[in-house]
């Protein structure tokens, strides 16, 4: 086991995938010599060459549109969108082409494309650098959506996303890039299954489901709580794996879903609906959501009031138990 940050674990995972399969090519703005603005691709251009770690023009639609063509030609493009707020110029290519090509070609053309996006807030950034766009992608049939929450998961799931023959929107919790954890660099993880939730902390009173940057927040809340909180990292936002959540709710009777993204039409609503359908008679309170508000992501000096934190999670836990 090696201690790495999420950023370094992603770098190691990308390197491993490129070593394993020469058809894996990386493309994005400033990813070559600079190593990306978050240094996730640091050193990869030097080691794999400019033809496999491609500095793209400043054009997101071009990046994703070209990935479609590269995939048609048998490559496995892994593209980087510099920040969450800059994926929208590529939204058309993602929704209209990346997501639908398999279906339209009746299975003839696969789209093994990975679209990496640093997402979420909490880093004091200017506008368009702190967004949580996951619901748009989860709502789009044909896309898979993954988000790791710790270095080990990052190392595994980035390789599994690249090995996947479906397109994957891979959301990297940017404020957790520098979080450290143990990574098993020796393990061959490519064939593992990332499309599952992870039970990260057992508890008996309340179930908390979360993902990405909120996992750490929820684990901290669970440690601080004076009741017993079970924490589940959803990890795969599409497809959703709610079996562990349902099993947990059948024991606890209480569910709180936590995400940074705004409330309306968010993942919390989907989880709440499905769990209500499956566990109606086990629930002792409605499924509660702790989320960002339904406003544009605020200026950075207000973001701490927008983002769910430990106290807001605990508040929801208390409200659920007191229902």
């Amino acid at each position: 086991m090696t201690e790495l940050t999420i950023a370094k674990a992603l770098n190691a995972g990308l390197r491993r995938a490129m070593e394993h399969d020469s058809r894996v090519v990386l493309m994005g703005e400033d990813i070559g010599r600079l190593g990306g603005v978050f240094r996730i691709t640091d050193g990869l251009q030097k080691d794999f060459g400019e033809h496999r770690v491609i500095d793209s023009p400043l054009a997101e639609s071009a990046i994703v549109g070209a990935a479609v063509g590269l995939a048609m030609r048998g490559y496995r493009p892994v593209v980087e969108i510099q920040f969450d707020g800059f994926v929208y110029p590529a939204f058309d290519q993602i929704v209209s082409q990346v997501a639908k090509t398999l279906r339209r070609s009746e299975g003839a053309v696969r789209m093994p494309v990975v679209i990496r996006i640093p997402y979420g807030g909490g880093i004091g950034a200017v506008e368009h650098h702190s967004e949580s766009p996951e619901a748009y992608f989860v709502h789009t049939a044909g896309l898979r959506v993954l988000t790791p929450s710790d270095p080990g998961a990052a190392y595994r799931t980035i390789q599994q996303a690249i090995a996947c023959d479906d397109p994957v929107v891979y959301l990297e919790p940017k404020r957790r890039y520098w979080d450290k954890g143990e990574v098993d660099l020796a393990a061959d993880v490519r064939s593992g299954d990332p499309w599952c939730s992870r039970l990260l902390r057992e508890g008996t009173d309340v179930t908390v489901a979360c993902y990405g940057p909120m996992v750490r927040t929820c684990l901290e809340a669970a440690s601080a709580a004076d009741v017993s909180v079970e924490v589940i990292d959803l990890q795969s936002l599409s497809p959703l794996d709610l079996d562990p959540v349902a099993a947990s709710v059948e024991r606890t009777g209480h569910l709180v879903v936590v995400h940074e993204a705004s409330k309306t039409g968010g993942l919390g609503a989907e989880v709440a609906a499905r769990i209500t359908e499956r566990c109606f008679y086990s629930l002792e309170a409605p499924v509660l959501r702790v989320t960002g508000y339904d406003v544009p992501y605020p200026a950075s000096r207000l973001e701490e009031h927008f983002l769910p934190d430990l106290d807001r999670v605990l508040d929801a836990v208390d409200r659920s138990l007191a229902w």
Binding site: G85, F86, Y88, V126, E127, H128, H129, P296, P298, A299
Partner: peptide, 26 residues
């Protein structure tokens, strides 16, 4: 004001006849 993180704007673009800074390139 925008760089200080207290607003995503800073001035009245109609009164100043100058739009707000646009961060999304292009």
């Amino acid at each position: 004001a925008m760089f200080r993180g207290i607003t995503n704007g800073g001035w009245d673009p109609i009164a100043r006849r100058c739009s707000l800074y646009t961060i999304v390139i292009g």
